[in-house]
Design a protein around this nucleic acid. Structure first.
Lengths: 112, 112
DNA sequence: CGTAGATTGTAGCATATTTACAATCAAAGT
DNA sequence: ACTTTGATTGTAAATATGCTACAATCTACG
């Protein structure tokens, strides 16, 4: 009992967590140019994961969400740093929800 | 009222729907070799989306889930075709759940 | 051994991404 | 007008990733 996989979860968060896309996709999805995404990264605002050593950037759900939020705030007139700071706060909640869902999906059922 | 974005959804399904990854990522995520994925595709079992004309394959959550399920069944001894058929049935439910969540997230709140 | 189903290997070419250096552009200050 | 600062963009050369089309391999079964 409690093998690798329980039954069908409603949604496979284990899989969703692993979905990481390249910078081109992020650009397509968010409408933010690749070049700008790299720039934000240079400034330490975004942090993509790199698999091996000199490989390419990968972005997960949370990264992409963050990019979307920053862009929204800048459209409203915030500076990059201000937007980043504001988003940073919201990301804490967003991450918490996402990771919590992901975790509870992983261990199946836990009383406490 | 009812602009582009409502408030924070718990999860941004609109974004999740758009997450499509390259074949290399799928291979990393699922453990199924790229070559095999392409083979299954040749046989019509998997259908990746191609953006433009001669561009590269993209796989979304549902595609990847399907690949995982087929691999599981084959590990249990099913033939490729049998596994594909069996999975096809399960995918209907899985898709329904996913797309339903995605849709209800998109229109925010709809009585009927 | 022969056959069918399943998978793998690889060459040659096409597309995507990276890094690094530099240029641009708008708004604010003096 | 000139300069500064923050934000963004352009691009070349190298590396990484992916595509197609060919053929080869491997296993189970009669």
């Amino acid at each position: 009992m409690s093998d690798k996989h329980e039954i069908d979860p409603l949604l496979d968060f284990d899989l969703l967590k692993k979905l990481v896309v390249g910078i081109g996709e992020v650009s397509d999805i968010t409408g933010v140019p690749m070049r700008k995404i790299r720039y934000w990264e240079e400034k330490g605002i975004i942090e993509s994961e790199k698999e091996g050593e000199g490989t390419t950037r990968r972005y997960d759900y949370l990264n992409i969400k963050k990019i979307l939020l920053i862009q929204e705030l800048m459209d409203e007139g915030f500076t990059l740093d201000a937007a980043a700071k504001k988003v940073e706060a919201r990301m804490k909640n967003i991450s918490k929800v996402f990771l919590k869902l992901a975790d509870s999906a992983t261990d199946g059922n836990k009383p406490e």
